[in-house]
């Protein structure tokens, strides 16, 4: 595997204090990618354990008393879950926008404006996230 220098006594000197746009984009992309993977598996785990609903009688399903519906309703009642959903949207939107930016970078398109496209991804993510808040938080209180 790879190895790197250990500068011993002066290891901590001259570390970057200033990150540039591309470096932030890289960190954020890693972070959001792994958050999405984490969410995906939690999502599968939670919903698959609620599946017994499929075996319920029609009447129970009609009344909304089955495990699946109950699980969803309980989760959606929690304010924390609503807030996390906003966060998940932000993470997903940024990952998609910056992912598109990275694909363009891989194709060698618009490399001179790579920093601008990163800032644009951030601003767009922010705007979409803010716009989504009413929908996600509606009826949580």
């Amino acid at each position: 595997m790879s190895q790197s220098y250990n500068r011993g006594l002066i290891e901590d000197f001259s570390r970057w204090r200033e990150f540039s746009a591309g470096m932030w984009a890289w960190i954020f992309h890693k972070f959001t990618g792994w958050v999405l993977v984490g969410y995906l598996f939690t999502h599968i785990a939670v919903l698959s354990t609620a599946i017994p609903a499929a075996g319920q009688e029609a009447a129970v399903l009609q009344a909304g008393d089955d495990v699946y519906t109950q699980t969803i309703v309980t989760l959606e009642e929690l304010l924390l879950v609503r807030i996390l959903e906003v966060g998940l949207l932000a993470v997903a939107v940024f990952h998609i926008l910056n992912g598109t930016r990275l694909l363009l970078v891989d194709l060698g398109i618009g490399l001179e404006s790579q920093d601008k496209s990163f800032y644009a991804s951030l601003i767009l993510t922010g705007a979409i996230t803010v716009a989504s808040v009413p929908t996600f938080i509606a009826g949580a209180f």
Binding site: S20, D106, L111
Partner: peptide
């Protein structure tokens, strides 16, 4: 290379390093 562009940003001779690396990848 993870296309962080830090090299391109600091090169005192303004060489588009990331661009060249990406082209070699292709």
């Amino acid at each position: 290379c993870q296309t962080q562009f830090s090299c391109t940003e600091v090169c005192p001779k303004d060489i588009p390093l990331t661009e060249h690396i990406q082209e070699l990848k292709r």
